[in-house]
């Protein structure tokens, strides 16, 4: 989809606050519907920095846009875990020097040294969550904590399933279903993966990511593969759904604010990252998007709904989630081929 430019009322705010109007600029490349506008206004009011934002709807389209020539026009972007690693490998990220971020100590220890960015040299946590699926309990009241709901569904759910139109997460979930590793090069495993998703597709109604919430609310789909926060929003909007924690496993992800190479306003970008490392600021994002921040001290600032939401609090017996792996070039080509065969 096209990107939208949202200019905040920064200039007006800066003037009313009696500040110099040209303290600086900041150019953000961000997901759709993922940051409350009030928070950007607050940043502008505090720093006098004028913010512009373009949005994207998938990690891949963000990468394509940057590679297609918009590199150098943005200061920060918000890639998911595996995409941070890809962008780092491609040399698209600038390094944050030790001590440059005042609030770096606020990052939760478990998110400080992550595989996709060891030592947090290029990124800070934004939000994290899980990808599983939600089931309409008025349509199906059996056991939903199994990936068979998507890949080998019971009769009642056939033809009423929406899956996310995201190759990485869908094939990762299918791999968990089959109990095979991600980035496998074993021919029999890959053949099995291809056959499984192709057979399952006959039972799927649609591939839809940005409409994943709406199809559950409208009842078009009785099962929807979905991100946990998006699922919580669907439930709040009236869908009689329950979010599943399948015993075979599910996907977890973390979105991160990265400092882009050739950032035109590097200083503003560092200020913005420090701003998002403040618990009271990042808590606003969590309350808006219904995901979890990787920052200490956020919990007391969350809304009651979010603290108790089943999408945020896996039952004690739920397995741990799995991150989507980054495959090497040759292996990735095989997964791309499986995807093409699925969608032909």
């Amino acid at each position: 989809m096209t990107t939208r430019r949202i200019a905040t009322v920064a200039a007006a705010l800066a003037l009313t606050a009696g500040m110099a109007s040209a303290e600086g600029k900041l150019s953000i490349f961000h997901w759709f519907e993922y940051i409350p506008k009030e928070l950007l206004d607050k940043f502008t009011a505090e720093t006098g920095i004028e913010v512009t934002m373009d949005t994207y709807d998938s990690n891949e389209s963000m990468l394509a846009s940057l590679k297609g020539g918009t590199m150098g026009s943005y200061d920060v972007a918000v890639p998911g875990d595996y995409m941070v690693q890809i962008m780092r490998d491609e040399g698209m990220l600038d390094t944050i020097a030790e001590g440059e971020l005042t609030n770096k100590a606020n990052i939760e220890p478990q998110w400080l040294d992550v595989d996709f960015d060891p030592g947090r040299m290029h990124s800070i946590p934004y939000q994290w969550g899980s990808t599983s699926f939600a089931v309409n309990r008025e349509v199906f009241d059996g056991d939903i904590n199994t990936t068979s709901i998507i890949f080998d569904p019971p009769e009642a759910l056939k033809g009423k399933i929406n899956v996310l139109d995201t190759q990485g997460e869908l094939l990762a979930l299918a791999s968990l279903h089959l109990g095979i590793p991600q980035c496998s090069t074993d021919r029999d495993q890959l053949r099995l993966l291809s056959e499984t998703v192709n057979a399952a597709k006959d039972n799927w109604a649609s591939f839809n990511s940005d409409g994943a919430k709406d199809v559950l609310v409208s009842g078009d789909a009785a099962v929807g593969m979905i991100w946990n926060g998006f699922g919580a929003k669907a439930r709040v909007e009236g869908a009689p759904i329950e979010y599943a924690y399948p015993k075979e496993g599910y996907v977890v992800w973390m979105d991160n604010v990265v400092l882009l190479k050739d950032a035109p306003n590097r200083e503003s970008a560092i200020k913005f990252m420090d701003f998002l490392l403040e618990p009271e600021n990042i808590a606003q994002v969590s309350n808006f998007a219904q995901y979890t921040a990787g920052i200490t001290g956020v919990t007391p600032l969350l809304s009651e709904d979010l603290k108790t939401s089943p999408e945020q609090n896996p039952p004690a017996d739920a397995p741990a989630g799995t991150f989507v792996k980054v495959c090497d070039q040759q292996t990735q080509a095989l997964y791309d081929a499986i995807w093409t065969r699925l969608k032909k």
Partner: peptide, 20 residues
Amino acid sequence: GAKNWMIGSLIEDQFKGAAG
């Protein structure tokens, strides 16, 4: 439902999708 590609969606996926 984006289940079966037409030419336009095939081309779009090459530029915007995971295949890149």
